[in-house]
Simulated scan of single mutants.
Amino acid sequence: MQLRFFASLREALNLSQETLELPATVVTVGDVRDCLRARGGIWAAALADGRALRMAFNQELASADTVLTDNGEVAFFPPVTGG
């Protein structure tokens, strides 16, 4: 699975993208977030449940319940604000 991290999340993790082989138990976008959060440290803080965070699957906004398909891309980014 291709993972992408944007804006302040990319800065916090010091990583813009990663390719990750996910366990078979990871079937939704929310599962990906949980899997990454389980790494602990900055991962747990940056992807914490209470943190405002948007997710996308294959370049479309997604919810935690969005089901993954093979060779997909999951992106994480903070909400966008305008002014």
Rank of each mutant, 00 (worst) to 15 (best):
V27F: 00
V26S: 04
G50F: 04
T66M: 05
L20R: 13
L3M: 08
R10I: 04
P79I: 07
L20T: 10
L9D: 01
F76S: 07
L13V: 08
A44H: 04
L61K: 02
T69V: 14
Q59N: 13
W43T: 04
R51F: 07
V80P: 03
E21N: 15
A52I: 02
L61T: 08
L61S: 11
R54H: 14
G82K: 11
G30Q: 05
L68V: 02
F76W: 07
V27H: 01
T25F: 01
C35D: 08
E18Q: 15
L36Y: 05
A56T: 08
V67R: 15
T69A: 14
L36M: 09
V27D: 04
N58T: 06
I42H: 01
F6P: 02
E18R: 12
D65Y: 05
L68I: 05
E21V: 14
V32D: 03
D65L: 13
V67Y: 04
V67W: 01
P79K: 11
A56L: 09
R4V: 13
A45C: 00
V67D: 03
L53V: 12
D70M: 00
A56I: 12
E11P: 05
E73T: 15
D31S: 00
V74N: 02
Q59W: 08
G41N: 13
T69L: 10
A75S: 13
F76P: 00
G30F: 07
L9G: 06
L47T: 02
L20K: 09
A7V: 01
V32Y: 00
S16T: 15
L3E: 05
P78G: 07
T25R: 10
L36I: 07
N14P: 02
V32A: 01
A64F: 10
P78W: 07
S8A: 11
R51W: 13
P79S: 12
D31P: 01
E60L: 12
E21S: 14
C35T: 13
G83T: 09
A7Q: 06
R10T: 09
T81Q: 07
E60S: 10
N58G: 03
F57V: 10
G82S: 13
F6Q: 04
Q59S: 12
V26G: 06
D34Q: 14
L20H: 02
V80A: 15
L36C: 10
D65I: 11
A75V: 09
M55N: 10
S8G: 06
A45P: 00
V27G: 00
A7C: 07
N58V: 08
V80D: 03
R4E: 11
A24Q: 11
W43V: 04
A64C: 11
A75N: 09
I42Q: 13
D49V: 12
D31Q: 03
R54L: 15
A62H: 11
L15R: 15
A45E: 15
A52G: 06
G83S: 13
A45T: 12
R10Y: 09
T19C: 03
D65R: 13
Q17R: 14
L20Y: 04
F76V: 03
A56D: 05
A44S: 14
M1R: 06
A45L: 05
G82R: 14
M55I: 11
L13S: 10
L13F: 08
T19I: 05
P78R: 09
G50V: 05
